[in-house]
Design a protein around this nucleic acid. Structure first.
Lengths: 200, 200
DNA sequence: CGCCGTCTTGGACGTACGACCAAGACGCTT
DNA sequence: AAGCGTCTTGGTCGTACGTCCAAGACGGCG
């Protein structure tokens, strides 16, 4: 392997780890499988990372970022509240249907992290990030169009509702495979949430 | 260990496996940890089970049964549709709050099974069982009170919606820990579903 | 009592894993 | 050119795992 800064090698190993995990699951991502995917000798792993746990922490942060970028960028824009909401959800949903294995991995990683005392903090932060994102989403919906809207339910409850539904529908699709029916269930939610908004 | 029929030993090993998994996760449930929990010598394991995979199949079936019994028994009964629906959901929710680790295990097992080619069928059947149960739940709601109700959305979509929300809210609570907010989100759903029913 | 199928058990085998190390190669600075 | 910090690498250590086996113990039936 050509000479390379330790930092860049770290990034490559993180990418390789994600590739292996998406393809074969977290448990298949052994140090040996990861360095093989990155085409590096085994020794480089523990030169770049103190432990496998340290690498997993970075993997989780990278993956969480991927997921969030999508939906948020879509809810801001033109149109009625219901239209924008539906557009944001469809953007998220499209990503799920296109890259199901990547989403399967996020759930797997969360559970793996929750069981490891050293990574439990990371798992909690992951969900708080999701909640914060959906809170911002809901607030972005009310603020647009120059008109101030109010909700029939408290924003924290709404945020949890949206977070939970997205997670639940995704999980159901991943395990059952019926994308059409799951998508319809999401539309039902979009309609519901839009109906909860009222003009102040 | 006293002499015992192979069938009974199987049951004890399944119970022991569940105990270990609830306490420490699926990955900690090694053959050695399981027989230690059951207070048996290692050799008994492969006398009772062809492989560890065979045991896991039985574990999943037992656990799935546990979860379902709760909610279903509550929706049939006296009262308005919304009241019965809320009661069923609260029954399920109470079980989640009382035994979070058992629910965490169901998700863990589903993912584990989905990755194993030999157990993928079991994972799929698990979710089809959930869907079937929630379909029956919805139909039970319409049939009661002697009046026939109809829904503003197709029953299969409703069933997926309910399944997904229960899963999602549970998962969120398990990872975030805010039981009160999650419970309120469930109430929001009960109200929503009740509103979707109309008298024919 | 003696047979035979069922059950019991301690130990062993091969494999795979995370982690570690020492010896050397590289390349920038002085 | 010499020195030195950074990076590279193959090999190895101890541990833990799933699985298998052979030798024996038990107990119901003829």
């Amino acid at each position: 392997m050509s000479r390379m800064a330790a930092g860049e090698r770290r990034e490559r190993l993180v990418d390789a780890a994600i590739a292996v995990m998406v393809r074969e699951g977290v448990s298949a991502a052994t140090t040996r499988a990861i360095v093989a995917e990155a085409d590096m000798p085994l020794g480089s792993f523990h030169y770049c990372f103190r432990s496998k746990e340290e690498l997993l922490g970075e993997v989780i942060e990278v993956i969480t970022g991927h997921t969030l970028e999508r939906a948020l960028s879509e809810v801001v824009g033109e149109g009625e509240l219901e239209e924008r909401l539906r557009r944001g959800m469809r953007a998220y949903w499209q990503h799920v249907v296109e890259e199901p294995d990547e989403h399967r991995l996020t759930y797997e990683l969360t559970q793996y992290a929750a069981r490891q005392s050293g990574l439990a903090v990371v798992a909690e932060r992951q969900y708080q990030t999701y909640l914060a994102a959906n809170t911002r989403l809901i607030e972005a919906l009310t603020d647009a169009e120059g008109k101030r809207l109010e909700w029939d339910a408290p924003v924290p409850v709404l945020a949890r509702y949206v977070t939970a539904v997205l997670d639940g529908v995704t999980l159901l699709y991943l395990n059952e495979g019926n994308a059409a029916a799951a998508g319809e269930a999401l539309d039902l939610v979009a309609l519901h949430v839009a109906g909860l908004a009222r003009r102040a």
